[in-house]
């Protein structure tokens, strides 16, 4: 799903308030300077990962595997995308506009 910045800010504020439990449930990857940061994250099953585009240029978050388990719409500046990872495994993804941008989510 796609969140507007105001909603995202609210979500982040909640995450800060609830502390440790929220960290166990969520993880955030930022997009700056045509790069996913961190490029690789490890999360437990059931974790929702949020990607936030802070570039002036649109990007996508696209599963590299076929068929694709997830693909975001184009994310404009400050748009974000969330996906819940329920099944353990290694998920490689990339930006379908700028395919040199790559990242990995390890679920275990």
């Amino acid at each position: 799903m796609r969140l507007r910045p105001a909603i995202l800010a609210g979500t982040m504020a909640c995450a800060l308030l609830t502390g440790v439990r929220a960290r166990a449930e969520g993880a955030t990857v930022t997009i700056d300077n045509f790069a996913f940061t961190p490029a690789e994250i490890t999360v437990s099953p059931g974790t929702t990962v949020t990607w936030l585009n802070r570039d002036d240029i649109p990007h996508t978050v696209t599963d590299a595997a076929e068929p694709r388990a997830f693909k975001s719409p184009p994310l404009d500046t400050n748009d974000s995308f969330r996906h819940a990872f329920t099944t353990p495994g290694t998920y490689h993804y990339f930006c379908s506009l700028h395919p040199h941008m790559q990242g990995t989510v390890v679920v275990r």
């Binding site: 490689h92 990339f94 379908s96 506009l97 395919p99 040199h100």
Partner: peptide
Amino acid sequence: LNNVQDLKAGGL
């Protein structure tokens, strides 16, 4: 020519 679709991860 159209060289902007069906791009592959890590590709050009």
